[in-house]
Design a protein around this nucleic acid. Structure first.
Lengths: 133, 133
DNA sequence: ATTAAATGCTACCTAAAGGTATCATATATG
DNA sequence: CATATATGATACCTTTAGGTAGCATTTAAT
């Protein structure tokens, strides 16, 4: 009942970059700061580039910067790109014969709860995560 | 952000048994009814026996029956036995440097939400899942 | 130009979840 | 008793998420 490690890594990276926008972050730099496995981190960064969150520059002094305003990057967008949000649209108990439309004993509870969570993730942007100093 | 397949299988089995308490369910019978992989299902049933939810009888006409009242088996108990409930006690975003006690931007939201979920799972028993006919 | 330091790409490795096969043991029934 | 049908136990296989290695390409600094 939690986000995948890969999703947490991605959120962690983008959160760090949001808190430190003055620096161009290379994979190596982020690896040292966040202790995320180096090569795996590089794959994630390439994916985040392809998905349009960040932009890469190659060569010496290269690295990654945001390709759009951090107030326009919502947590749901990031989660969607790494693991999808489909799990919220299913029966909470994972019953395949219990389509989300029908009413199992958990239905009303889960409709309400998942709406709260989805809403939170869709409205909370990276900017909202910035720590007040 | 969902329960593991193994947990869903277990919930599905116990839910079926709760709805059909008149029959002694063999692994083979449950396999045919629920389409859960036969041998994997047998492992799960053995585990559910060891964890005290059900009781097995061997030999011809053997199978599984509940070893306690289904009003005393809560969803949280089942989830705890298959995948644990630890994930609820961690930072929602999975940040290892964000202990759950401290306050990241998701803190208040997650404290509230996880309490609702945990409470639901701890108070909903298998009896509560029984379909009114 | 050469080199150092960066990303792009891609093939491969590892660990864990999910799933299979099989032998041993128990028991009801003919 | 023999047999069919159960579970117990355990070793092994498969798939997927997570992680590594290394070559090609790009670019800044010397």
């Amino acid at each position: 009942m939690n986000l995948t490690k890969t999703t947490s890594y991605s959120l962690n990276v983008l959160n760090y970059m949001a808190q430190n926008r003055e620096v161009i972050c290379s994979a190596n730099y982020l690896h040292e700061k966040l202790k995320i496995p180096h090569q795996y981190l590089r794959q994630l960064l390439t994916k985040l580039s392809k998905d349009g969150f960040i932009h890469s520059t190659r060569g010496r002094n290269g690295g990654f910067v945001f390709s759009k305003k951090i107030s326009e990057i919502f947590l749901a967008d990031i989660i969607e790109s790494t693991e999808g949000l489909d799990s919220f649209n299913k029966c909470m108990l994972g019953f395949s014969d219990c389509p989300f439309d029908s009413k199992c004993a958990m239905h009303d509870f889960w409709v309400d709860t998942r709406e709260r969570i989805i809403n939170e993730l869709k409205t909370k942007s990276l900017e909202d995560l910035i720590l007040k100093k």
